[in-house]
Amino acid sequence: MSLFDTPFIAAPMAGGTSTPALVQAVQAGGGLGFLAAGYKSPESMTAEIVAARAAGIRFGMNVFVPDPVQLSPGPDARARLESYRTELESEAARYGASVPAVRFDDDDAWRDKIDALLADPVEFVSFAFGLPGKSVVQALQKAGTAVISSVTSVAEALAAAEEGPDAIAVQHTSAGGHTAAFLPAGTGATGAQAAGTTAGLVAQVRGAVDLPLIAAGAIMDSSTLKEVLVAGAAAGQVGTALVRTEESGARQAHKDALGDPRFTETAMTRAFTGRSARSLVNEFVRDHRDAPEGYPAIHHLTAPIRAAASAAGDPERLNLWAGTGWKAARNGSAENVVRDFLSGL
């Protein structure tokens, strides 16, 4: 069997969507689930690990890699962020909320989370938004953890392979939520933009690195899962297809929006967090097409707006993360969704 013992991996979806209950249901269906440390304190991350272990399930943990450039922007970037903050004040006023001051002190408790995962190792740790560094990779491996780096191009895959991870997650631009990209667009001869499909990108990376690959992007049924496996992936990483399930911790307005015919397209946007992410196109995405780069500063600026919109049941100002195949997402138990994926292989 492969490193994962299943071709179905539930994507780590930060912000509360990935829950121990979701991971448990995925395992019951024959898959492997990941929890997400992003936006959580080290204590909350550890509590979810404890809950998953108490349920007796296999799981991995995903960690965001901080970007020093975004945490220490220059004067021009700071001015753009202040301007965007002013732009957001009218959005907050709709709900009687306020926009906080711009902050640059949030590295998502990077060191504390790594220390916690070294002190109490889990089976898998995956990284997104950057490479963790060879020393972190080796320390986790020494502790008994298999390490997975996330990439979006051949150039990034080659850089990731230099650090010696156990596997690489290959994310196509069709994937919902944040891009895992960490090199400037156009770096290297090929990339996600050059590959028309997730399977095509997997084939490109398969030809460049000799590591187990996890494919991510628009994998919505057994046929698209089979395509990436044939292209050379050891497993497919599925996110959007699980968002509407009973065990998902996504906001109800997000779940409902995925089945609402008024939403007709997805787009990459920085409007909600300052980092490009694929979302259903709602009023907020349309109104802030020129949002600047600035993660996680913009995440904090829009957090009160998103919370108020959720409380009001208003999907027009929520980050409705969705891959390009979102229309195939369905509700019900995640266990049944996974079984359907695997039964068609």
Rank of each mutant, 00 (worst) to 15 (best):
M13S: 10
E82W: 02
L342W: 11
T198S: 11
H300T: 06
T145S: 13
T6W: 10
R306Q: 11
D5K: 15
Y295P: 01
F182V: 11
Q141M: 05
S2I: 04
P304Y: 01
K142W: 00
P132I: 11
Y39I: 00
L158I: 14
R278P: 03
A203K: 15
W321C: 04
R275V: 01
D287A: 15
R206P: 01
D67M: 07
G56S: 06
S223I: 09
V65K: 06
A312M: 12
T190I: 04
A161G: 10
A175Y: 09
E48C: 02
R58Y: 13
A14R: 07
T198A: 10
R53Q: 04
N336E: 15
R80K: 15
I114F: 10
E48T: 01
L117C: 12
R317A: 05
D221H: 07
P12I: 06
L88W: 02
L345D: 12
T224R: 13
A215M: 03
A181W: 03
R78W: 10
W321K: 08
P165F: 08
K113F: 11
M220G: 04
G56Q: 03
A97R: 05
S276N: 08
D106T: 01
D112M: 03
R306P: 05
R103E: 12
D120Q: 08
A11C: 05
T17I: 14
A159V: 01
L258E: 10
L118Q: 08
A199T: 11
Q138R: 14
Q27Y: 02
Q24N: 14
G313N: 03
V137R: 09
E265P: 07
P304I: 04
A271P: 08
A97E: 13
T173R: 14
E87L: 10
R78I: 14
F59R: 05
I49E: 03
A233F: 07
K327P: 00
A155Q: 05
L242R: 02
P75K: 07
S2M: 09
E87S: 13
A10N: 11
I219C: 07
L320Y: 02
L229W: 07
S248L: 09
A277F: 08
T17S: 13
A37E: 09
R262P: 00
G191E: 03
R289I: 14
D260E: 06
E265F: 05
R286L: 07
P100D: 04
I214N: 01
S98M: 08
A235K: 07
Y95E: 06
N282V: 04
D67I: 02
R286S: 10
D290S: 15
E82A: 14
L280S: 12
E82T: 06
A97Q: 12
T173Q: 13
L242T: 03
V230C: 02
A97I: 08
